[in-house]
């Protein structure tokens, strides 16, 4: 990956591939505070190292064939030297007809074919958001478009490139920027730094419930019976007891607020079973879903 530009800066090419996505992951990363998104894209985000965003459909200036060519050129010419970020799940039903990008000889090219092209040569792949990590909302039952996660996709196509999952609907910008910064500073994460779902333990190592400011209410058996009241939100369906993320400590949007902080319940949006295993969102968890409470990881 060592490619020095003028002044000795090392350039890290990055392709941002949007599949069956809602663009929420991109919007969340734009919300990064420190570093700002300007620091990430324009400045040397780590001294001497610059993220070179080659393809991102929501922000890039160009359009049409020229930008597709830019993506493919990067995959060809920077073999083993670029980071691939995937946002959204991969639609596979009906031979990929539910999601296409461009065409060849009048025939639409499925997103899956494009992804196969750019995934194989990547140095590492970051599956950003719950759809890319686990299928997410797009793969909700009955999964009309046959959406699969990046992990499933790589296995199906026997592509052996290191994968890091950064789930969340949407993921916190710190989780993404922190993971990228860690790669720039000390290389790819070691196996013991990821959990069994390939999530960095640094961000997904603790239960929401363990650090929830309403935890004391839970211990004392004080439960809110309707929204807006004090008390633990367990009776209102909060999924904090089965959800691993550092939201209560990190907070969201420049530490302005977070789901439970605003009186809304956690819906477990970072978990592999989201949404189907976590829904109905406003139904109380069954007691047998609670054994993980207090055990952490």
């Amino acid at each position: 990956m060592v490619e020095r530009g003028k002044g000795g800066t090392v350039e890290y090419p990055l392709i941002w591939f949007a599949a069956s996505a809602c663009t929420g992951c991109s919007v969340s990363v734009l919300n990064s505070v420190s570093p700002t998104i300007k620091n990430v894209l324009i400045d040397e985000v780590v001294p001497g190292k610059h993220i070179n965003l080659r393809y991102h459909a929501t922000v890039m200036a160009g359009q049409g064939d020229a930008v597709i060519e830019e993506m493919e050129h990067t995959a060809r010419s920077k073999k083993g030297g670029y980071i691939l970020v995937v946002e959204g799940a991969i639609p596979t039903a009906a031979e990929g007809a539910y999601g296409t990008m461009g065409e060849n000889g009048g025939k639409p090219i499925p997103m899956a074919s494009r992804l196969e092209h750019v995934a194989g040569n990547a140095l590492a792949i970051i599956a950003l958001g719950t759809c890319a990590s686990f299928g997410g909302i797009a793969a909700g039952a009955p999964n009309p478009s046959g959406c699969i996660s990046v992990d499933q996709f790589l296995k199906q196509h026997r592509i052996n490139v290191p994968l890091i999952n950064i789930p969340g609907c949407a993921p916190h910008p710190d989780w993404f920027v922190g993971t990228v910064a860690a790669i720039l500073l000390k290389g790819l994460p070691k196996p013991e730094e990821l959990d069994e779902h390939k999530r960095p333990k640094a961000f997904y190592g603790k239960l929401i419930h363990e650090n929830c400011p309403r935890r004391a209410y839970f211990e004392e058996g004080k439960f809110a019976r309707k929204f807006g009241g004090p008390g633990c939100l367990n009776e209102l369906g909060c999924k904090g007891p089965v959800t691993y993320a550092d939201c209560p400590l990190r907070l969201w949007n420049h530490s302005t607020n977070w789901c439970i902080g605003s009186g809304g319940s956690c819906i477990g949006c970072v978990e592999p079973g989201f949404p189907d295993l976590l829904a109905p969102f406003y139904q109380k968890l069954s007691d047998d879903a609670l054994p993980a409470v207090g055990k952490g990881q």
């Binding site: 996505a21 663009t23 459909a57 929501t58 922000v59 049409g64 930008v67 990008m101 065409e103």
Partner: peptide
């Protein structure tokens, strides 16, 4: 053919 039209939401 202009595809993708970028700087919008989606493809």
């Amino acid at each position: 053919i202009i595809e993708p039209v970028t700087r919008i939401e989606g493809h």
